[in-house]
Nucleic acid binder design. Structure first.
Lengths: 351, 351
DNA sequence: CTGAAAGCGCTTACAG
DNA sequence: CTGAAAGCGCTTACAG
């Protein structure tokens, strides 16, 4: 009726003490082998390794953390531009900070103008030399890259969050695959729109932002190849600004009678929603956007938006903290757990 | 340029010792207050509480775990029917077990016939009284419910995994909202299928499974209300069996010339794929299914499947372990982190 | 290259 | 109702 029940649970777990006794060495030497510190005779190391294998020893993580007792300090740099998604991210970083405290690690969050590479680079250079790790919403620019690499050269663990600098020496990027997100948007758009064709528009903040350019690229790729019946307009740049987006879309709607779809790559969804509703086109224009903010949720529920592509800010904040911590402690990372999903939300699977 | 940089990171963190000194009590008493154990004079407790607030004390989780030093044992009961999703889940439970060991907690995994309520109930009753917690892929049946409630009465923490028994006293359900998953499938189906209408079929294992019945219900609800141009056939029961599904779909395809969509609620996707391909209908019939197994992934990539609705087995395994551990230790749960998403995968956002 | 011993910050009997 | 002290399983100087 039941099978495969392991008996491990009923055995007492081996400690480092047990390993040391089994190998005939002291605790200190056993510890050296377990943590791969050098200065151990090869023969001794082999004896210890054998004991570890024989007893199936795995370290007690709580004891190790306590004994080490080194507090960790992380700096998180977020954009000072207050868009809804970044606000959510800041809230989640704060929540993560409270959890981290129990792990004897601390987060200092600060805000910098994202669109200004020099300011971001200066902020990175100006970081007090107390940090074990830094997480930043990056801007792909040579100055930023240099500042990241300088930190890494000083053995600070650096991760990029939401927006990457792939050529830098950051140890990890925590965010979605942006070209894939663009392709996903295109697939949804192409299938949601009427078969007879029409015109589609794409709105970005500026093509100078790597993630926006990448999403646009992925979108174009799929739409042009798989939905040739759709005509794609030159990209519109709204600077993530709702007011500007509203103006752009109002003009777009009056200039393009056969408009069937809008893909908003960046922020400022309120402006687009307003323009669509004012023109009475909210129900017949397919609109795909990013980030499940309160506004986006409302738009999904009332049918103005058709799909929202999301990255979970809570997951990203926790992931950044776990990854920084793991790098500091030399602990393993669960790749599976840290992979940031390209989430698709319709009205029906809203959390 | 930067602002809002907290100074917490530069302060030394307060220990229980500090709290005790500040309140003028012993460590033991401070501990009693922190952990809400009783037998402390109200005035003393107030003094300690004041010290905690003043110093901003939060417990060092590692030290607490170590001092407590109580190993935890969990039993995980999975279906013995070896479908691809359940195999993935078993792999993830095993991976989680390795992580848990470092937390001084251990998982015993065993397998029971899911479709047999009495066998499942007997397995629950037959569990050795060594377990602090139990996670099971449940079957919503009075015998199972009674067996769960008996465990809870013996103060065992019980969680349901993937499939729930909502009326039982289990402390948590780790899985997706199944009616919402069905509604999501319907929205995708309705929008992917040609506007002119046609016939849609739904395949389940059996309507006696709560999750299948719920998904079917959600699907019907949205499809009938929002896509009245689509005709829905009576549900087909394939017992999660690929061979049976293949036969059902072969017959379906020949009997229903205007078939435009299939929603497979359960397992056995290979059978459906085979029938669609053999009939040369793979590209024009919209097919929505569940669980991103290797087969499902292949079907998405080659265009046989149009969307896969997924629950992440790795997330579920880790979540079950974290939730059981938290309940054992009286620790808080991060609801946000434990929420199991209804994931939508298209070819483009495959991980 | 190796070991004895102190110590990390809690919890837990035990005594009073 | 309160406290002194041992102990959890590691890591870390320090001595040799």
């Amino acid at each position: 009726m039941t099978r495969g029940q392991h008996q491990t649970a009923l055995r007492q777990r081996a400690t480092l003490e047990d390993v040391a006794r089994e190998a005939g060495v002291s605790l200190a030497t056993a510890d050296r082998v377990v943590n791969r510190r050098d200065g151990v005779h090869a023969k001794t190391a082999a004896r210890v390794a054998h004991a570890i294998a024989k007893l199936g020893y795995t370290a007690n993580a709580a004891a190790a953390r306590l004994a080490r007792n080194r507090p960790r300090r992380f700096a998180f740099l977020l954009p000072s531009t207050p868009n809804a998604f970044m606000t959510q991210l800041a809230v989640q970083v704060a929540a993560t900070a409270r959890w981290l405290e129990g792990q004897n690690a601390f987060i200092d969050m600060s805000h910098v103008d994202v669109f200004d590479a020099e300011a971001l680079a200066a902020a990175l250079r100006g970081l007090q030399p107390v940090y074990d790790g830094v997480a930043l919403v990056a801007l792909d620019h040579p100055s930023v890259r240099a500042a990241i690499d300088d930190l890494v050269a000083r053995s600070v663990h650096v991760v990029t969050l939401v927006s990457d600098v792939p050529t830098s020496r950051r140890v990890h990027y925590i965010g979605i695959d942006n070209p894939a997100a663009g392709r996903t948007a295109a697939s949804l758009m192409g299938r949601f729109v009427p078969r007879r064709g029409g015109t589609v528009a794409v709105v970005v903040a500026t093509m100078a932002l790597r993630d926006h350019a990448e999403r646009h690229f992925g979108f174009m790729q799929v739409l042009s190849q798989e939905f040739p019946e759709l005509r794609i307009l030159p990209v519109l740049e709204g600077r993530d600004d709702a007011t500007r987006n509203r103006t752009l879309v109002r003009r777009l709607l009056s200039d393009t009678p056969d408009l069937v779809g809008i893909y908003n790559v960046g922020a400022g969804n309120e402006g687009i929603a307003a323009a669509l509703e004012t023109a009475g086109r909210a129900r017949d224009v397919v609109w795909v956007a990013h980030e499940l903010t309160p506004d986006a949720r409302r738009c999904l529920l009332n049918g103005v938006a058709d799909a929202i592509i999301n990255q979970d800010p809570g997951h990203e904040a926790r992931s950044a903290a776990r990854i920084l911590l793991a790098h500091c402690e030399g602990a393993p990372i669960l790749a599976d757990q840290e992979r940031i999903r390209i989430e698709i939300f319709l009205r029906d699977n809203l959390p």
